[in-house]
Design a protein around this nucleic acid. Structure first.
Length: 109
DNA sequence: CCCGTGACGACAT
DNA sequence: TATGTCGCCACGG
C-alpha cells in the first residue's frame, strides 16, 4: 500500500457512512484531482487487495448509476446497497441526491 | 519508452 | 435532452 494516491481514495471511501453513496468525481475533487475521476475508479478496481476492504459498492457515478456492478458481478452491488437501506432500481440509486455523501462537505465540519 | 485501456466527468454540438 | 468528443493520469503489455 505504498501507493499514496490509492490509499487516499480508499481512506475517503471507507468514510462513507452506511446507507449513503458518493461519486467518483466527489472523491477526486476532495483529493484535489477532480479532473482525474477515472483514477478514483481505477483505484477502486484494485480495492480488492486493500485492507481493510473498501465499500466500493457505495461509490457510484455522477448519475447515481451502478457502473461498477459489472465488476462486482451480477446483482451483488445492488444487493449490498439495498441491504444498507439504499433503494436501487434499474442499476440506478433512488433518491441519489438525498443519499449523496460529499466528503468535501460532510468532512468539512 | 510508447501505446492502448478505463468502476468518470464536463463541455460541445 | 441525447450523443459525441476530449481530458485526466495510472497501469499493463
Amino acid at each position: 500500500m505504498d501507493d499514496n494516491f490509492f490509499d487516499r481514495v480508499y481512506e475517503v471511501a471507507r468514510l462513507i457512512p452506511p446507507g449513503r453513496v458518493t461519486s467518483y468525481g466527489a472523491i477526486a475533487s476532495y483529493l484535489g484531482t477532480k479532473g482525474s475521476s477515472r483514477m478514483v475508479g481505477y483505484a477502486m478496481q484494485a480495492c480488492g487487495k486493500a485492507l481493510p476492504p473498501v465499500p466500493a459498492h457505495r461509490v457510484v457515478n455522477r448519475q447515481g448509476l451502478l457502473t461498477a456492478k459489472f465488476h462486482f458481478g451480477g446483482n451483488l452491488m445492488e444487493q449490498l446497497l439495498e441491504s444498507e437501506g439504499v433503494k436501487v432500481t434499474d442499476d440506478q440509486v433512488q433518491d441519489f441526491k438525498t443519499l449523496f455523501w460529499d466528503p468535501a462537505i460532510e468532512l468539512e465540519l
